[in-house]
Design a protein around this nucleic acid. Structure first.
Length: 517
RNA sequence: GGGCCCGUAGUUCAGCUGGUUAGAACGGACCGCUCAUAACGGUUAUGUCGCAGGUUCGAAUCCUGCCGGGCCUACCA
């Protein structure tokens, strides 16, 4: 199998906020894909980072009594820390305030401009000084004096400022053709429909510079203008692979990106503006954008005002890191909005992890420890049931790969857990505790089949639960260099007689503190 | 206003290029087992497949309308 490079990105997160569960969710999905593809022997480049420019950041910095750079240094660090807390394996962490990014952003501007797609005009609209924002005519209401006011109640005035424009309106046809030729460019399907209908509805030229604030990347040759934050931000995906040096080995290897993972709120920027910018600059477009849904706290959108925002560090300290990673990707069909709650979390931890896979490993390994001299048992000839279980363990990678490749994590996990179910049924059917008395050789074979199945499960769950998987594989004395997907299958099966450490439970049950009467 | 998605067992969902008695998981009930983290296995669904029409030999699955939920987007004033 050809092992092609794989480049995937999270959005860069806006530094105006603390990392919450939504940020953790997006990056988690990418982390799982990154680990998955590495195990599939691909060279992976996994990028995340922070978006640090813009008027809001400038304003927040001033409020905090800091200069913008100091302010963003601090907030960006919170996002870096999240990577540690969640065991993310990103290969790079980009900040839009870095010099390499300044170079890239200016370079793409020049490329677009040189190709004739940028022009200078003036931007006009209803502007609220208090809100520092433009409002559409339709958003405005009038107060008793007949003065137009913003939805926030602030007074607005008609202002015009000089601005550079990107001729987005010219890209309507090329974009529609691009979507047509690349049916997998946007996932899931419902988002794709939205984007296509948005573009079909007509595109207006896009204002891509501002003169009203300073905290951003200056427009080349016209430093009174600051680049529009989205053009700035999106370009980070190029910066990280060495652009504008298109001879850079990373650029040659990794661009165009295989996947930009985004939340559903920023699909338009990634699925419309970004490919248009790239086409205008004469650069290749990414292969896929995937927009996932929101995690809802018991049905309510999390928001600061509702005070129901879940913080990743709180979940992790309460339930443990790997269980949280598993839960988030198993419970909610990726791409849909979904509810998360303590109740369903505990249910997943106890039934899927502790009862199903955890107990499977523990019951199997402790029988081996007690009855096989603490070593990999020596199997005899395999029966039909043995082969059936082994082949389900060996083949599930194909399903997992297909599902993960279309970001259907919950489906991939479901397929892996079907093997767990098969294994538990197999234990019951074979009843090795009976065989111990009647047919020890057969018992050894059954226990060997179980150990070998668990080896597969351990390898397969590494992307989702790296630590727990490692513990499982350690308990089978699987070498750290024998844990990739290449090692699935009979060719790398456990060696009979290899000594095994004393087994210990890997997935503890979660017991609620509050004891019901 | 236009568009997209959704409404299926107590719960979360699958099925939806139309075709035997509508499925899974979790929860509940009953039974079995005792290797194991009181875990595992088996059996168990009186579900109006949102409502009402229509097409068809036959619809959860296609069409129309309505009700309810979500999302994208436009505009009048």
């Amino acid at each position: 199998m050809a092992s092609s490079p794989y480049y995937l990105t999270t959005p860069i997160y806006y530094v105006n906020d603390r990392p919450h569960i939504g940020h953790a969710y997006t990056t988690l999905a990418c982390d799982v894909l990154a680990r998955f593809h590495r195990l599939d022997d691909r060279e992976v480049h996994f990028l995340t980072g922070t978006d640090e420019h813009g008027q809001k950041v400038e304003k927040s910095a001033i409020l905090a009594g800091k200069d913008p750079q100091t302010f963003t240094d601090e907030v960006s660090q919170n996002f870096r820390n999240l990577a540690g807390d969640m065991n993310y394996s990103n290969d790079d962490f980009i900040r839009t305030t870095e010099e390499r990014h300044n170079q890239a952003a200016q370079a793409i501007w020049r490329a677009i401009k040189d190709n004739g797609h940028i022009y200078l005009d003036s931007y006009a609209g209803w502007y609220s000084v208090r809100d520092e924002a433009f409002y559409a005519e339709s958003e405005l209401t009038k107060n008793e004096d007949g003065q137009k006011i913003a939805p926030t109640g602030a007074e607005v005035e008609w202002v015009e400022e000089p601005s550079y424009f990107f001729n987005l309106s010219k890209w309507e046809e090329p974009l529609l053709e691009f979507y047509e030729k690349n049916p997998d460019f946007i996932g899931p399907e419902s988002r794709r429909n939205e984007v296509v209908s948005f573009v079909k509805g007509g595109l207006k030229d896009l204002s891509i510079s501002r003169t009203s604030f300073k905290w951003g990347i200056p427009v080349p040759d016209d430093p009174d203008h600051i680049m529009y934050v989205w053009l700035d931000a999106l370009t980070n995906y190029l910066t990280a692979v060495g652009y504008p040096d298109t001879k850079n080995p990373d650029y040659l290897k990794f661009w165009p990106a295989d996947l930009h993972m985004v939340g559903k709120d920023i699909v338009r920027f990634h699925a419309v503006y970004w490919p248009a910018f790239l086409m205008a600059a004469g650069l290749p477009t990414p292969k896929r954008i995937y927009a996932h849904g929101w995690l809802l706290n018991k049905g309510e959108k999390m928001s600061k005002s509702l005070g129901n925002v879940l913080l990743p560090e709180d979940l992790v300290s309460k339930y443990g890191l790997d269980p949280v990673r598993y839960y988030l990707l198993r419970e909610v069909p990726f791409g849909n909005d979904g509810y998360i709650s303590h109740k369903t979390m505990v249910s997943r931890i106890n039934s899927d992890l502790a009862n199903d896979i955890g107990n499977l490993a523990q019951r199997s390994l402790s029988m081996i420890a007690k009855n096989c001299d603490g070593a990999v048992p020596t199997p005899g000839a395999f029966t039909e049931s043995d082969e059936a279980l082994l082949s389900s363990a060996r083949n599930v990678i194909d399903t997992a790969r297909n599902e993960f490749n279309r970001q259907a994590f919950h489906r991939g996990l479901e397929a892996i857990w079907a093997v767990v179910g098969d294994s538990n049924r197999y234990v019951d059917a074979q009843a090795p505790w009976e065989l111990r008395k009647t047919d020890p050789d057969r018992m050894a074979t059954v226990l060997y089949v179980l150990a070998e199945t668990i080896r597969h499960l351990g390898i397969l769950i590494q992307p989702i639960m790296p630590d727990a998987a490692a513990q499982l594989l350690n308990q089978l004395s699987v070498g750290v260099d024998a844990r990739t997907f290449i090692h699935l299958g009979p060719g790398h099966a456990l060696t009979a007689g290899a000594p095994l450490p004393k087994p210990a439970p890997v997935f503890p049950r979660y017991i609620d503190e509050e004891v019901p009467i």
